[in-house]
Structures are given as C-alpha cells and as structure tokens.
Design a protein around this nucleic acid. Sequence first.
RNA 1: GCGGGUAUGGCGGAAUUGGCAGACGCGCCAGAUUUAGGAUCUGGUACUUCGGUGUGCAGGUUCGACCCCUGUUACCCGCACCA
Length: 803
Amino acid sequence: MKYDFKTIETKWQKIWDEEKAFAAKEDYTLPKFYALVEFPYPSAQGLHVGHPRSYTALDIVARKRRMQGFNVLYPMGWDAFGLPTENFAIKNHIHPEIVTRDNVAHFKAQLKALGLSFDWDREVNTTDPNYYKWTQWIFLQLFKKGLAYKKEMAVNWCTSCKVVLANEEVVNGTCERCHGEVIRKVKSQWMLKITEYAQRLIDDLDQVNYIDRVKISQKNWIGRSTGAEVDFNTTAGDVMTVYTTRPDTLYGVTYMVMSPEHPFLDKWADQIKNFDDVKAYRDEAAHKSDFERSELAKDKTGVKLNGVMAVNPVNDTQIPIFVSDYVLMSYGTGAIMAVPAHDTRDWEFAKKFELPIIEVVSGGEKSVQDEAYTECDTGILVNSGILNGLSVEEAKKKIIEYLTEKGVGHEKVNYKLRDWVFARQRYWGEPIPIIHCEHCGYVPLDESELPLKLPEVEGYEPTEDGESPLAKLEDWINVKCPICGAPARRETDTMPQWAGSSWYFLRYIAPQCDTAIAPKEALDYWMPVDWYNGGMEHTTLHLLYSRFWHKFLYDIGVVSMPEPYAKRTSHGMILGEDGVKMSKSRGNVINPDDIVNSYGADTMRMYEMFMGDFEKAAPWKSSSIKGCTRFLERVWAMQDKLVDSDKYSSKLEVMMHKTIRKVTEDIEVLAFNTAIAQMMTLMNEVDNVKSMTKAEYKTLLILLNPFAPHMTEEAWELCGFEGRVYQQKWPEFDPAKCVDSAVEIAVQVSGKLRGRVTIPRDCSNEEALAAAKAVEEVAAAIAGKTIVKEIVVPNKLVNIVAK
RNA sequence: GCGGGUAUGGCGGAAUUGGCAGACGCGCCAGAUUUAGGAUCUGGUACUUCGGUGUGCAGGUUCGACCCCUGUUACCCGCACCA
C-alpha cells in the first residue's frame, strides 16, 4: 500500500487537536517537564526552514518525555511587536495589528502542518493587551524599585529621515534605508539598571546547565574586570579619577586622556588657554557616528589642554592632559592614565604626539620605544620606586595598598555591561505606563489602569523631531497627574522588542490569568524551564535580558528561583545549498511549505534532524531529502510482512536493545542524526535476517514516533495495535542484551593493523592472544622477530610489538 | 585586534573520548525489473604504481593519535579603542 502522506498527515493533525493529545495537565503531583523554544517573530515572509530545526528537536524531546510519563509543557507563541511590521504598516497604510494577525495565522498554519506537539491552548502573543498588561506591570515594578530611570543618552539620528535609529539599523555609519548621514544626538530615554545585576548574572551561571560557549559569551558580554581607581590632582584644583586594570604601571604614566564628553572640560573652560581648539574637537567628535569613532585602523587624534596639568600621586610629577575620542565617557570614569610603554593605544598616541615612553615592566622582546610591551605578566617592575623588583602580581597588590593608605585610590571592579536603553520612538510596541508631571516628576500609572492600550493613530511615521507617533495624539497624551491632579503628559516612547520576550515563558504557565502573571502555585510547579533551545544569535542579549528580569521577579517574590532556564542548548543555522546564509538577495531560500507539500511533514522533520550535527551550521541539500523518504517508506512497507509474535526474535534481539539504547541516549544529547542512523541500521538488519516480529515493529514505531509522528500513528492503527503511539510507554533496553556474544577484534603488529579475528566476548587475554597469533597475516608479520610487548584491550584489539 | 568555533571520501556527516577511520545517508558504478525514462530492488564505492598511503599543515608524546601537547594555515560567527 502506497504511503499517502497528504491524507494521513492531515488526518492525524486533526485527531491530535480533537483528543487534546499534547495539552499540559494541571496536575501538580505529576513529574513535570517544561520544554521551550524561542517563539518566532511572525514576519511577512512566513516560516524559515531554520525555525523547524529547533522546534522539531524539542518536539522530539517533548514527545519522548510524554511517553516516559512526564507532564510536559511545550508551548508556542508570537513575539509580534517590532519594526518590520511597523514599516509594512507605514508603507501600506494597514494597521500593524491586522498585519500581525495575518502573519500569525500564516505562521500557525505552517507550524501545524509540521505536526509539532505544541499545546496550542497556551498560545501567547506579545501584542495582545492581556499579555502586555503584564509586560507593563513588570516595568512598573522595576520603576518602583528604582531600576527604571530616565537619562540623557546619545542616540543614532538619521539626518535625512529625521528619525532615531536602532543600532542594527545603522550600516557602516549610514542609515540602512536612505544611506543618509547618521550622527549622535542626545535624547532623554528610559533605562533599566541591568548593571546592578551584573555580578549575579555572572555568578549564577554556575547554577545552570548551559553549553559552554553560551556561558562564555554571557560572561564576555558582561565583561568584568578588576583594577583600581586612582585619583590624580590637577592644577585646575579638581581631582580627576581614572580607572585602570594595571595600577602596577602607575610610575609609567606620562600623560592623561579625557573623553570629549568629560564634564571637567566645560568646568575648566577659563583655565584652558586653547579652549576653542578643545571645543572644536569636541564638536567634531559629536558629529562622528559610533562607527567612525570606533573604526580600529584610524589614526589617534586629540588636543592637548594648555594651562591644566595633572599630578601623578606616586611621584608628584606633573603630566599633560589630552582630550581624545579614543577614551569613552561610557566606561570607567571617562578619563584614563596613559602608560604608553605597556598599552598599544597609549603607545600609538604617544608616538603621534611625541610623548615620553617610560618602561616600568622589563622583559619585552623589543624596546618599548619600538613596540608596546603589553603581555607582560611575567615581567619585573623597573623605574617604579617602591615597586622595583616586584612581579606584576605583587606590584598590583602593593600599589593598591599604598594608594588606599594614602587615600588616593582603591581597588575597583568594572563591567563592560551598560544599562539597557528601554525606549523606542516607535508606535508598534508596548506603551510605557508613566505620566510626567511638572510638579511630581515621573509618576507610574496605577496598576488598575493596566493594560495601557496602544491608541489608534492616523499614521505610523515618527514625528519630525523623532518622537513616537503617539506624540501626535494630544487627546491621549494630556492627562491629569495621578498624584496632584495638575495637567501632565503621558510618556510617548514605547518599549523595545526585547521587552515581551524577556518573560514570555512565565505567561505560558497561565496565559488567561488576569490577576497575576500566573498563579504562584503554577509558577512554582512549572518553573524553571527544564530545557530551552534557541539560536546562537540570542545567546547574549535575549538570554541576558530575560535572566535579568527573572532575577528581579525573584527578588520581589513573584517566582521562587533565581534562574529561569535550567538548561540551554543552541542549534546551528541552516544554510542555502551554496553553503552560505539563506537570503532573498542570493536567491537561495528554501520555503518549508514546498518541502512539506512535495515530501510531507515527516520527511521534512526527519531530514532536518538527519542533515548534520544539530549544533553546527549545515547546508541544505535537496537531493539528500529522498534518503529520509526512502527510509520512512521502507518502515511503512514492513507492516504487511510482520511475523505474528509478541517477542523479539533471537536474530534481532541484540539489535533491538542496541537501537533502543542508542535512540534513547542520543535524543538527550541532541544527536538526532545518529539516532536516525541507528534506526536505518536496524532496517538494514531486518532486510538481512528477512523477518520482523510485531513486537519488534511496535518498538520501532514508538522509537520513530517522535521523529515521524504521522506515519507511525497510521501504521500503528493499520496494524490493529491498541491505542495510539503517543500514548505508549517509551521502550526500555537491557544493557546485558545490548552486546553480541562474539566480537571481532583487530590485531595489530607494532601498531599496524595486520588482521581481524572473531573471539568470544570477554574471553581471557591469553585466549585473545592465542587467537590473534593464529591469524595468518599476523603469524607472517612476527615470524623471526622477538616479541617485546603484548597489549590486549578486551573486546577491542590485540597489539603485538615485535622487533 | 579580542573572544568563540570549525577543518575527516565526490557531498552531508560517524567514530563508545587514546584502541579496527569513513557508521548512516546522498551521489556515483554495475546488475535486476522496465519499450524508455522515473521509481524500486541487489551488489560495489577513501586513495593506491597493490609495496603501501591516508582525518588542513609541521613537529612531539605513546605499543597505538581524528582524539593529548607545541607551533602553523585557512575559513565561519560574535564583539569592536572597555583603559
């Protein structure tokens, strides 16, 4: 009988819906398993073949867990706020809500066609007011705890579109859309104090099971460093504090550098004799984009301050101060001490401005006049007063003690992590529930007024001066201050797209709940997420933001554990057939609908799981798909040829146990390709022995069900087996039955393979050696030689070393 | 520049983590079936001058190295003057 995937797949998808086969149960006495995949942004392009790679992988895990007796929560939703939808709305004058609704419907149909076992009753959508009510609620809690605040921030400003751009929209220093000039402009923005959680975000990584490279990228992004803050007196009177990771090189400081944005510059305007030059330099720097400023290859530029000098606290030497844009206001104190002998950037600057270079750590290969000696951990301090003769490590310790004692410095930890800019001047995002009153400042909306719904607007374009389109709605903006009743104005910025995805996994637990994110009891039962899979592109920001919010919710008692995800894995990207990233412009995009239509969902799932190492990028290969179809059809065709027995046959028993073990274990480590290979090997073996019992077939259908759920259910039903496959118990293997009674071992002579011999498993070393020496080629190779050593690796190989 | 990753047949990839390199699949070759093509089935398939040689390259450790060590090259991803 031909396998008609179209009819069969639709049939089973309908049955699963009707039977609510994959609904998570609200029985908190059962062992639970929460499987999570990143919810997609429902773009107009529809599903990408990359999405099902992740979804199918955890679908396999979820289906297996259900058969292993777990109460499984495997949900899906939509991260639907965002720019592409808004841009589409602007261009076509269609409400983003309608665009979103259509895109979601399309995505959902595509996902359903793949037979993924999501619990669709728990679908969430970040743009649903019942959802973003709680996004806004969390923001209010952050605000009340002082973790949300407003700050003047430099933003990317397109001078021709007159709009604020996100960093991702700035390409090579120009606007992504119009290629106009992008400059930095100061704007007052909502910020979240994620930096307050920096240390905990590092420390708690020890509690979770993330793949190493994810932990490493989290740590690198947070960028913790230890060093010291050192106070330098200046002839202007003010104390200039710098941050350094190398306080041991303090005697090598030959000048100082301030960031162009440093507030002391204006303060010293009268004392700086060349203030006009300084001001000109600062203005120039302000007009440079981030890209221009950070372009690595560029020359160091700067202006020396005439009339103000700094004083080195360790030797009272007067040194010049420069202003240069290689020093960032946003890190450390916005000013540095320059040690050209031991820092490449300082060295370049010193060479250009002909400043002295003093070696304070000896041991470099070249003179410090020719090259900065930066990797000097093993060096010895010289020209350094009280530090002379010490190692770098000792010198750091001693100088910090010295500075602390004198009251001019102390040890200091710094992080690269910045506070999170939590505002966009856009329409299609969650309104920020804050009212600004002249008298009372920023006043939070009362929680009873949540959700603060997005009002209707005429157009979705930002205003002339870059404000959100909400700024045009005078009726909506003008409200009374909730505290004093005076006229006040609503915040018109909206939240960034990251907001909704920072806590969505909590909402799946009770998507309809209108009194809380979810009942505490339910949160305590389901959290943490047991297994979260997603792309490498989200391993820094999304993971960090959501961990931060979760820790905050833990601090205020909403959730009971500090980390949201017990385990995090990452899938590799699916590349085009040409081995490069799929993109419309390259024309190498594969549409998942086409694959499902011509091969069926089961083949599509199998292929994506079989195509390569799950964690690595893999190129799509249309010609390889049929291997999976062939395998499924071979399994399908077996149903008419079964031997009526409820036992494993002696011929296949070992193979069955081996297969159960391999599939069971491989799914746990995301090795789907080898799990499938093992089932293929089993089918090859069935061909060899020319028979398969009903018991063997049943086991195979269960093992294969998570991968190819439709075909296996249909075959199960046609065979007249009881119930559904998804209701079966996951098969168990007996380790003792996974081994053959005889093994073929390799025989080497002096490390070279000379033959093979079959011996009984677990036989003695003597027996193995005797059998090995009896092999013709081996005997020939050792004839006339002295045997120096004999190595026996039980059940694997014999190595005879002969001279 | 810094951080992370990768390198194995014609191709995608396996290899119990120091013990038979190339599982499984694609492709290809031959045969069967077929008017033919397609589909399906069976067998073969790293290279080889048949001595051997082979896991990017050069060394090292070991009875034994895709695996460990040292050096090196190429490519991919992320970050970008973080003092």
